[in-house]
């Protein structure tokens, strides 16, 4: 009870405004000929599709590494896993599980290296994370051309060299999570139960991780690194661990995203993905150094709700396509607001 009160107190006006904005969009939707059931299903689908990216922000925020602008590294690991799984010819649930399993070692390796870098640059993590992410995406662009994958679904038939920019997952694991126990609400609206369950599982695992001895130490490192060190906790190790977990979640996140989306996207696709996750968790009420599961859920829902509802409702209401611009201003405004807020940690 008190934590809910606390949460409301910390909620802050930007989130309240966004909440009511979204609410009014839902209320207004039917008047502009937008079907509520479809919208709701769409929001739920995107919620499950993007939630894990947002969840991936939590460990690094908790350990004091700031927002993971370099989430693309995890996404790359996920893409490698997906490609290996396709190459191995795994299909269905096995293909999805295989992709996660094969992505894991890459995620750990990338996360470890990336964590080492971030430990060297304490205080400047976010800018550097961003450029490390950008640089690795561009590096992988080269690799996608060079690497010797040869499954016919993934390479250009003729005229091109290397992997396709988008690879269809139709015959592999498209919607394997979404369709699991899916509920058809109305003829055109389906609730992707499996996807939501998987997201809930991830949230539960993260929630309980933060309750373990190591999770407690990680939070303490983010809250006050000097305290943690004086209590015998290695801050560098905790930070690296948080980066590895975040990177791994990034890998899982892209796999969930792809199975729902039906396509695997290579090349520059991961470049901008971290920003959406950053925006979502900040909208959810997290600060640069404190984030909770509640922030993840609320943030993902509000952000994805905004993305889904503004185009359909605003555009039909105003008879323009102004929604894109509104989204651009609102979500980037939130990020700026969060960055200019005084740090909550008092010293």
């Amino acid at each position: 009870m008190s934590s809910i009160k606390q949460y409301l107190a910390d909620f802050g006006w930007p989130r309240i405004i966004i909440f009511f904005f979204l609410l009014s969009l839902f209320v207004a939707a039917p008047f502009f000929g937008v079907r509520l059931d479809n919208s709701l299903a769409d929001v739920l689908n995107r919620f499950g599709q993007n939630g894990i990216f947002v969840l991936a922000m939590v460990p690094m925020i908790q350990s004091g590494c700031g927002l993971n602008f370099g989430l693309s590294l995890g996404i790359i690991a996920g893409l490698i896993g997906a490609l290996l799984s396709i190459q191995a010819g795994l299909v269905g649930a096995l293909g999805f599980a295989g992709a996660i399993a094969m992505a894991a070692p890459f995620a750990v390796l990338f996360g470890w290296a990336y964590g080492r870098i971030l430990n060297k640059v304490k205080g400047e993590e976010m800018t550097i994370a961003m450029y490390v992410g950008f640089a690795s995406v561009m590096f992988m662009c080269i690799m996608w051309i060079i690497l010797p994958f040869d499954s016919p679904t993934m390479i250009w038939g003729y005229g091109g060299k290397g992997l396709r920019t988008t690879i269809s997952l139709e015959s592999f694991y498209k919607r394997v999570l979404n369709d699991f126990l899916a509920i058809r609400m109305t003829p055109s609206a389906i609730i992707p139960t499996g996807e939501l369950l998987f997201f809930s599982l991830c949230i539960y695992l993260m929630w309980s991780f933060l309750r373990t001895k190591t999770g407690t130490a990680m939070t303490a490192v983010g809250s006050n690194p000097d305290f943690a060190r004086a209590s015998g906790v290695s801050t560098d190790r905790m930070r690296t661990l948080s980066v590895i977990i975040s990177t791994f979640l990034g890998a899982v996140g892209i796999l969930v995203y792809q199975q729902s989306y039906g396509f695997l996207q290579l090349y520059t696709a991961p470049l901008q993905m971290p920003f959406a996750a950053v925006a979502a968790i900040l909208i959810g009420g997290a600060s640069v150094n404190k984030g909770s599961m509640l922030n993840v859920v609320v943030g993902t829902f509000l952000f994805q709700g905004l993305l889904t509802m503004t185009p359909s409702v605003i555009n039909s209401a105003l008879q323009t396509d102004m929604s894109e611009v509104i989204r651009l201003i609102v979500s980037n405004g939130i990020i700026i607001y969060a960055l200019t807020r005084k740090l909550k940690v008092t010293k």
């Binding site: 091109g160 920019t165 988008t166 090349y267 971290p274 925006a279 651009l328």
Partner: peptide, 16 residues
């Protein structure tokens, strides 16, 4: 260009 806000389109298949 809405950067990270726009959905990628799968039909943008251009041979690099």
């Amino acid at each position: 260009d809405t950067g990270f806000l726009s959905d990628p389109s799968p039909d943008a298949e251009v041979v690099p």
